[in-house]
Protein backbone atom coordinates (compact mmCIF):
# COMPACT_ATOMS: atom_id res chain seq x y z
CA UNK A 1 0.00 0.00 0.00
CA UNK A 2 1.28 3.45 -0.86
CA UNK A 3 1.58 5.89 2.02
CA UNK A 4 -1.11 8.56 1.35
CA UNK A 5 1.30 11.31 2.27
CA UNK A 6 3.80 9.96 -0.19
CA UNK A 7 1.16 9.66 -2.90
CA UNK A 8 0.13 13.23 -2.28
CA UNK A 9 3.73 14.32 -2.61
CA UNK A 10 4.10 12.40 -5.88
CA UNK A 11 0.95 14.01 -7.26
CA UNK A 12 2.19 17.46 -6.38
CA UNK A 13 3.74 19.56 -9.13
CA UNK A 14 7.44 19.00 -9.45
CA UNK A 15 9.74 21.68 -8.17
CA UNK A 16 11.83 23.47 -10.77
CA UNK A 17 15.55 24.21 -10.47
CA UNK A 18 17.81 26.67 -12.18
CA UNK A 19 21.06 24.92 -13.07
CA UNK A 20 24.34 26.80 -13.04
CA UNK A 21 27.74 25.71 -14.31
CA UNK A 22 29.84 23.96 -11.67
CA UNK A 23 33.07 23.64 -13.65
CA UNK A 24 32.29 20.16 -14.93
CA UNK A 25 33.94 19.93 -18.35
CA UNK A 26 33.75 16.26 -19.34
CA UNK A 27 30.84 16.68 -21.76
CA UNK A 28 30.17 19.17 -24.60
CA UNK A 29 29.51 22.73 -23.28
CA UNK A 30 25.73 22.78 -23.77
CA UNK A 31 25.28 19.78 -21.46
CA UNK A 32 27.76 20.73 -18.73
CA UNK A 33 25.25 22.28 -16.32
CA UNK A 34 23.46 18.91 -16.10
CA UNK A 35 26.40 17.28 -14.32
CA UNK A 36 28.73 17.95 -11.43
CA UNK A 37 31.55 16.14 -9.65
CA UNK A 38 30.59 14.08 -6.62
CA UNK A 39 32.38 15.27 -3.47
CA UNK A 40 32.33 11.94 -1.64
CA UNK A 41 30.19 10.39 1.07
CA UNK A 42 29.48 13.75 2.74
CA UNK A 43 28.01 15.16 -0.50
CA UNK A 44 24.23 15.54 0.01
CA UNK A 45 22.24 15.24 -3.20
CA UNK A 46 19.47 17.70 -3.99
CA UNK A 47 15.93 16.58 -4.93
CA UNK A 48 16.86 17.18 -8.57
CA UNK A 49 20.06 15.12 -8.43
CA UNK A 50 21.06 11.46 -8.75
CA UNK A 51 24.46 9.82 -8.64
CA UNK A 52 25.53 7.61 -11.53
CA UNK A 53 26.51 4.22 -10.05
CA UNK A 54 28.86 3.53 -12.97
CA UNK A 55 31.10 6.63 -12.98
CA UNK A 56 30.11 8.47 -9.76
CA UNK A 57 29.17 11.74 -11.46
CA UNK A 58 26.14 13.62 -10.11
CA UNK A 59 23.37 14.02 -12.71
CA UNK A 60 21.26 17.17 -12.32
CA UNK A 61 17.79 17.88 -13.65
CA UNK A 62 15.88 21.15 -14.05
CA UNK A 63 13.00 19.51 -12.19
CA UNK A 64 12.58 17.38 -9.10
CA UNK A 65 13.37 13.72 -9.75
CA UNK A 66 10.96 10.92 -8.84
CA UNK A 67 10.78 7.15 -8.86
CA UNK A 68 10.51 5.75 -12.37
CA UNK A 69 12.24 8.72 -14.03
CA UNK A 70 14.84 7.89 -16.66
CA UNK A 71 18.06 9.89 -16.67
CA UNK A 72 21.15 9.77 -18.84
CA UNK A 73 24.75 9.95 -17.69
CA UNK A 74 26.59 11.47 -20.62
CA UNK A 75 30.13 11.24 -19.11
CA UNK A 76 29.96 7.42 -19.11
CA UNK A 77 27.03 7.05 -21.54
CA UNK A 78 24.84 5.04 -19.16
CA UNK A 79 21.04 5.01 -19.25
CA UNK A 80 19.59 4.99 -15.76
CA UNK A 81 16.21 4.46 -14.12
CA UNK A 82 15.43 5.87 -10.68
CA UNK A 83 14.11 3.40 -8.11
CA UNK A 84 13.22 3.73 -4.43
CA UNK A 85 15.98 2.12 -2.34
CA UNK A 86 15.45 0.30 0.95
CA UNK A 87 16.25 3.42 2.96
CA UNK A 88 13.62 5.43 1.07
CA UNK A 89 16.11 7.42 -0.98
CA UNK A 90 16.07 7.52 -4.77
CA UNK A 91 18.74 5.37 -6.39
CA UNK A 92 19.80 5.19 -10.03
CA UNK A 93 19.96 1.73 -11.61
CA UNK A 94 21.59 1.00 -14.96
CA UNK A 95 19.26 -0.03 -17.80
CA UNK A 96 21.17 -2.26 -20.21
Amino acid sequence: MVDPLEREADDAPRRRFLLEETGFDEVPPKYRRFYRRWQGASDRLGPNEAICPVCKVVIRSTRELREGDRVYCMPCMSRLVLVRAGDGALEARVAY
Binding site: E26, V54, C73, C76, M77, S78, V94, Y96
Partner: peptide, 20 residues
Protein backbone atom coordinates in the same frame (compact mmCIF):
# COMPACT_ATOMS: atom_id res chain seq x y z
CA UNK B 1 39.99 9.77 -14.65
CA UNK B 2 37.60 11.53 -17.04
CA UNK B 3 38.69 9.11 -19.79
CA UNK B 4 38.18 6.13 -17.48
CA UNK B 5 34.56 7.16 -16.90
CA UNK B 6 33.82 6.54 -20.58
CA UNK B 7 35.77 3.29 -20.58
CA UNK B 8 34.03 1.74 -17.57
CA UNK B 9 30.71 2.98 -18.93
CA UNK B 10 31.33 1.22 -22.24
CA UNK B 11 32.40 -1.95 -20.44
CA UNK B 12 29.26 -2.15 -18.35
CA UNK B 13 26.76 -0.98 -20.92
CA UNK B 14 28.02 -2.92 -23.91
CA UNK B 15 28.78 -6.13 -22.03
CA UNK B 16 25.66 -5.79 -19.90
CA UNK B 17 23.63 -6.31 -23.05
CA UNK B 18 25.98 -8.89 -24.65
CA UNK B 19 26.46 -11.18 -21.66
CA UNK B 20 22.77 -12.12 -21.69
Amino acid sequence: IADERRHVGFGENRIGSLIA
